[in-house]
């Protein structure tokens, strides 16, 4: 039996690490577009037009019940075929990362709508009325009072989503995405997978610290967003003088 070679692990690690930028790219794009879709879904679900609300609910249910790899294949193979003609041809020439972004935007759209909705509903309706009562418009009330609190409440969930996206993205090597995992697989294949274990070890060494760092970052962010809490701990430090 062959033992793990540190040299090989190092090789895979160093050669794959730069491809984190691809991961970063699709995670960012999917989050931004996904949250826009999510916000739209929430608006539709709250709308008075029953049919729109029903469609939005259906979207969330369907997306939540679809495995990511199924949706990924449907988007990658299905979309160009469905659209056909010139558009289909153009789509066929697009890079895999494009399809990954679409897929994950759709997913994040569904899950973020739940995050947004719960953040919104956890806010006391009274704060909106209080804003209106001092002469603010609906929009001002939303912008100055409700939105900041919603963001604060959504932050732990956003952190989870980023980690989820990073790991799920590993599936996308199946459509030829060259992210960290895709690159490592590619390199490993060149040496007919003799050094597969070294490669997986290198991948673990990449994914773990990054996930940990993101988790830590969001913990800090969460604290930062709560000025009262931040100050209370400061007071404690300075001898508990309020």
């Amino acid at each position: 039996m062959r033992t793990v070679e540190v040299e090989k692990v190092k090789y895979f690690f160093i050669e794959s690490l730069p491809y984190l930028r691809v991961t970063l790219l699709y995670v960012t794009v999917s989050l931004v577009i996904g949250f826009m879709i999510g916000a739209g879904i929430v608006c539709l679900r709250k709308s008075r037009i029953k049919i729109l609300a029903a469609i939005a609910s259906l979207y969330v249910t369907v997306l939540r019940c679809t495995p990511s790899i199924v949706l990924l294949f449907l988007v990658y193979y299905g979309l160009p075929a469905m659209l056909g003609g010139r558009v289909g041809d153009a789509l066929n020439r697009m890079s895999p990362v494009f399809f990954v972004c679409i897929t994950f935007s759709l997913f994040i759209g569904a899950s973020s709508s739940e995050v947004i909705r719960s953040a919104y509903e956890s806010l006391r309706a009274g704060q909106r009325e209080a804003g209106l009562s001092v002469g603010m418009t609906e929009l001002q009330t939303f912008w100055f009072i409700l939105l900041p609190q919603m963001v604060k409440r959504a932050i732990p969930n956003i952190g989870n989503m980023i980690i989820f996206l990073m790991k799920e993205g590993a599936l996308a090597y199946t459509i030829g995405l060259r992210d960290v995992l895709g690159q490592a697989y590619y390199l490993s294949a060149r040496s007919i997978n003799v050094y597969a274990v070294d490669m997986y070890l290198a991948l673990t060494l990449i994914y773990w610290p990054v996930s940990l760092a993101i988790e830590k970052l969001f913990h800090i962010l969460e604290k930062k967003m709560d000025p009262a809490k931040a100050r209370r701990s400061l007071r404690k430090l300075s001898g508990g003088v309020a």
Partner: peptide, 13 residues
């Protein structure tokens, strides 16, 4: 006008 609420409804942020 202005309104004072039973549950205060201060802006928590």
């Amino acid at each position: 006008t202005a309104f004072v609420f039973q549950n205060y409804n201060l802006f928590e942020n």
